[in-house]
């Protein structure tokens, strides 16, 4: 047997054992003071809610395989021939009507989300650490102002935002999209809380005594311990920009700069107005293609959410 095969076998064996341990550790619900009936009722509620939430996704998956007439003419939750998925998929990445292509919009979304998300994460990590572990004059007031930003919906500031952007030439500019996407107050708030709870002051004190500069303490000691929090903020801010509709709608009038959200909004208008024969299948499949990267990102970053990073560092 090859080493790799043996490795995978031991891994499978370990997982099996872990599952057994989990099963042994499970406590009968009666011990929590719950009745079987209550548990069944609650589980039913959860399942119903899950169905309710997942139904649109299932609908999108099924209908992405249909022609326009079948989308309207056949049962929504089952397939209908002809199977048009690949045909629609090919069309999706072709310039249809000169509005700008889906591929272009998709790349725009990727660019805005990654640069905005990474920028937001860097700012949140730096700011959160600073607010959590340094005391300076006005720190509370500054933090309060940042948190106040959480409460202002973007629709409220749409008009002033447009006027301000027009003044500084950020209308129809990539930066007009990226810069505001880097400001994620909730990310900073999350990071501050995360640092406060997961990076003991003694650890930073110890590094100071050990002669490390503040920058080195941040990079070498604090940052590695902030990874789970950091990944959460990255995911939140990337997803936030990915799904952003209002901001690009305000600042972009050039089709070539649209992200997928606004571009598909445009398609949706056209489909409704002119009854364009083939836009609805594209809209459905376009929506499906848009959510796939987000699901992949969740799956990819999941392994960073693990506990025990501080194991052995400080005694209680």
């Amino acid at each position: 047997m090859s080493a790799a095969a043996m490795n995978s076998q031991t891994r499978r064996e370990r997982r099996r054992r872990e599952r057994l341990v989990e099963r042994d550790a499970a406590i009968p619900v009666e011990l929590y003071g719950l009745k079987r009936g209550t548990v069944t009722a609650l589980t039913t509620c959860c399942v119903l809610f899950a169905l309710f939430t997942l139904a649109p996704v299932v609908w999108v998956i099924i209908n992405s395989t249909k022609t326009q007439s079948n989308i309207f003419g056949s049962f929504g939750f089952w397939f209908a021939s002809p199977f048009e998925f690949f045909h629609t998929f090919a069309n999706l990445f072709r310039d249809i009507d000169g509005d700008g292509t889906y591929a272009n919009w998709f790349l725009n979304t990727v660019l805005y989300s990654l640069s905005g998300g990474i920028g937001a994460t860097v700012l949140a990590v730096l700011g959160g650490y600073g607010f959590a572990r340094f005391e300076f004059r006005g720190s509370k007031a500054f933090f309060a102002i940042i948190i106040a930003g959480l409460l202002v919906p973007i629709t409220l500031v749409a008009v002033p935002l447009y006027l301000a952007y027009a003044k500084v030439h950020l209308i129809n500019s990539v930066w007009g999209m990226i810069l505001p996407s880097m400001v994620v107050p909730v990310g900073l708030y999350l990071m501050r809380t995360y640092v406060e709870l997961s990076i003991p002051r003694e650890l930073i004190d110890a590094a100071r005594i050990d002669g490390a500069s503040e920058l080195r303490i941040f990079l070498r000691i604090a940052l590695p311990l902030m990874v789970p929090g950091l990944m959460t903020v990255l995911l939140l801010s990337v997803a936030g920009t990915w799904n952003n509709y209002i901001l690009p709608l305000i600042i972009f009038s050039n089709n070539q700069l649209f992200p997928v959200t606004v571009g598909m909004g445009l398609w949706s208008q056209h489909a409704g107005n002119s009854g364009d024969a083939n836009l609805y299948p594209l809209l459905v499949l376009g929506g499906l293609v848009t959510i796939v990267p987000m699901i992949a990102l969740f799956a990819l970053l999941q392994r960073y959410w693990r506990g025990g990073l501080l194991l052995g560092s400080v005694a209680n």
Binding site: A206, L309, V314, A315
Partner: peptide
């Protein structure tokens, strides 16, 4: 300095 709770870099 040796800290009460060790403060090792985990």
């Amino acid at each position: 300095m040796v800290f009460q709770n060790y403060a090792l870099y985990p």
